[in-house]
């Protein structure tokens, strides 16, 4: 069955020496943008966030049967959960406050505040951060920082899309494999689609129902992970031979 896209994206931009020209429709609950370093993966996510100056961007979100032009909204109003590649934790806030950053912005009454606290609590548990909640970012390892980065993206109230840039960099495989089913069920419960970026074939296979393969700023393949990455494997084998 053909899925109806939840977001559509067109980006034409010059990123450094790279000419990016991409048109994509995202329909799968989890789409992986896969490609080597310098292929423009992170720039695509930044374009969706409104953080790519000088780019021509058309980015639409399906609301019921209407398409909303997200590119016309200010960055803060785009309803995105976002975990950037560099963890970018707020150095003056402890782990709990970092995770709860998005929820603490508009506390409307005691009940809303309690609900927000419960969401933060859930995210701390999901990413195994309970014991670290009072630590400051400078006291965290790379993997721990990355988990805080992910948890912070997961609690954005009213988010409509999750953007995860190399979400498991620095996180060990065992921990990743333990977190992933819980992450998926959290997202499924909220009916929240994900677009993540990786250069790791294993990660793409593990995650992706749908894979977009990006090379030098162009989409060279899009489809089910097994299909797109099978071609990739064949090509790798041919190169080896």
């Amino acid at each position: 069955m053909e899925l109806v896209p939840h977001h559509r994206l067109q980006v034409v931009a010059d990123v450094g020496a790279l000419r990016m020209d991409v048109a994509l429709a995202f329909a799968a609950p989890w789409t992986v943008i896969f490609g080597p370093s310098g292929s423009g993966k992170s720039s695509l996510l930044r374009a969706m966030c409104g953080l790519l100056p000088g780019a021509q961007v058309s980015f639409e979100r399906r609301d019921a049967d209407e398409w909303t032009a997200v590119e016309e909204l200010r960055t803060a109003q785009r309803k995105l959960g976002y975990a950037p590649q560099q963890a970018a934790l707020f150095p003056h806030l402890n782990v709990r406050k970092n995770v709860g950053f998005a929820t603490a912005q508009r506390p409307k009454g005691r009940a809303a505040w309690k609900r927000a606290e419960a969401v933060v609590e859930g995210a701390l548990e999901l990413f195994a951060l309970g014991d670290l909640e009072d630590r400051m970012p400078r006291e965290l390892s790379g993997g721990e920082s990355q988990r805080v980065n992910l948890a912070r993206a997961f609690v954005v109230p009213g988010a409509r899309l999750m953007l995860l840039d190399e979400p498991f960099s620095g996180v060990d495989r065992k921990q990743r494999d333990a977190m992933l089913p819980k992450m998926k069920s959290w997202l499924a419960e909220l009916d929240l689609p994900v677009i993540s970026v990786t250069h790791d074939v294993d990660e793409a296979l593990l995650l992706g129902a749908e894979v977009v393969r990006l090379e030098l700023g162009q989409v060279v393949a899009q489809g089910p992970a097994a299909e797109v990455l099978a071609e990739e494997r064949v090509r790798m084998l041919a190169n080896l031979g």
Binding site: C49, R74, A76, R78, Y82, F101, L163
Partner: peptide, 16 residues
């Protein structure tokens, strides 16, 4: 102040 922090905060829904 690191631009990355400012950008991340605004994507997470924080207005100016």
């Amino acid at each position: 102040v690191d631009r990355g922090l400012v950008e991340t905060a605004s994507v997470l829904g924080a207005g100016w």
